Simulated assay, not measured.
Amino acid sequence: MTDPEPILPALPGQRLARGVGRLLRSMDHAVLTEFTPVRGLRVDVISMGPKGEFWIVECKSCRADFMGDRKWQGYLEWCDRYFWAVDRDFPTELLPAETGLIRADAYGADIQRMAPEARLTGARRSKVMRDFARCSALRLQGLTDPEAFSAAAS
């Protein structure tokens, strides 16, 4: 019996996030997608590494997607390292040189340029860690007991 074809996310950015998640998981990071560190900001991928370090990865599927992103600099204060994830056809000369670069597709990713480290302050790290844990727990509960969410929303 052959394995069924994997169900891939519909949107290009979501496919990049899937590949990035696989890379980060292979590096022993815990990964969340579409995480909100503070009202008004939603990052594509955030990961917590084995030593408690936080990386944010923004997935850009094309030039227009990147050019339309006016919030990315606001993400810098919410992570220890910041990366862009793009596919092999993306014009990387558009991306700021002082950020990390990941080449990705739906099946995996490779770090092309390591992001410089800018350590979070203790108070900021504590907030991100609490929010990361709460978001993770709520998503897990939603998977194991979807009815709990419909009851809480009532």
Rank of each mutant, 00 (worst) to 15 (best):
M27K: 15
P9Q: 01
G19V: 03
L8G: 11
R88W: 06
M114Q: 11
E77H: 10
K51Q: 15
R18G: 00
A104I: 02
F90V: 07
F66C: 02
L16C: 07
K71M: 07
C79N: 04
R119W: 06
I111F: 06
A109K: 02
R125L: 12
I56G: 05
R103F: 15
P37V: 04
R119P: 08
R25C: 00
E98V: 14
R113H: 05
I56K: 10
A123I: 15
A10V: 11
A64D: 12
T33S: 09
W72I: 02
I46R: 02
P96N: 10
D65C: 07
T92P: 02
I111V: 15
D44P: 04
D110R: 09
D69Q: 04
M67H: 13
I56V: 13
C59S: 06
D105T: 05
L101S: 10
D105F: 06
R103S: 10
I7F: 11
Q14F: 02
V57Q: 05
L94P: 09
D44E: 00
E77F: 11
W84F: 13
G108C: 01
A106N: 00
D110S: 10
G68S: 06
A64S: 14
V31E: 01
A115K: 05
A118K: 15
H29R: 11
Q14M: 02
D65R: 09
R39E: 14
W55E: 09
Y107T: 00
E77G: 11
V38F: 08
M27S: 05
I7S: 11
D89C: 10
A30F: 11
E93S: 15
L95H: 07
F90W: 06
M27D: 04
R119G: 08
D44T: 00
D105N: 15
C62V: 11
Q112G: 08
I102N: 01
A104T: 03
L11E: 09
L94V: 14
R113W: 09
Y107P: 01
M48C: 14
A106L: 03
W72H: 07
D44M: 04
L41F: 10
I111H: 00
M48P: 03
I56M: 12
P91D: 04
G74Q: 04
W78S: 09
L41W: 03
D28P: 03
M27P: 00
Y82Q: 10
L76N: 09
C62H: 12
E117G: 01
L76F: 08
M114V: 12
T121Y: 10
L11D: 02
M114I: 11
R125N: 01
R15Y: 05
A10L: 12
G100H: 09
G108T: 00
E53Q: 15
A123M: 13
F35W: 05
V57L: 04
P91K: 08
K71H: 07
I46G: 08
R25V: 02
G21N: 00
I102C: 08
P50F: 13
V43N: 05
A104E: 03
T121F: 13
V45S: 03
L32H: 12
W78R: 12
G49W: 10
E98M: 13
W55R: 08
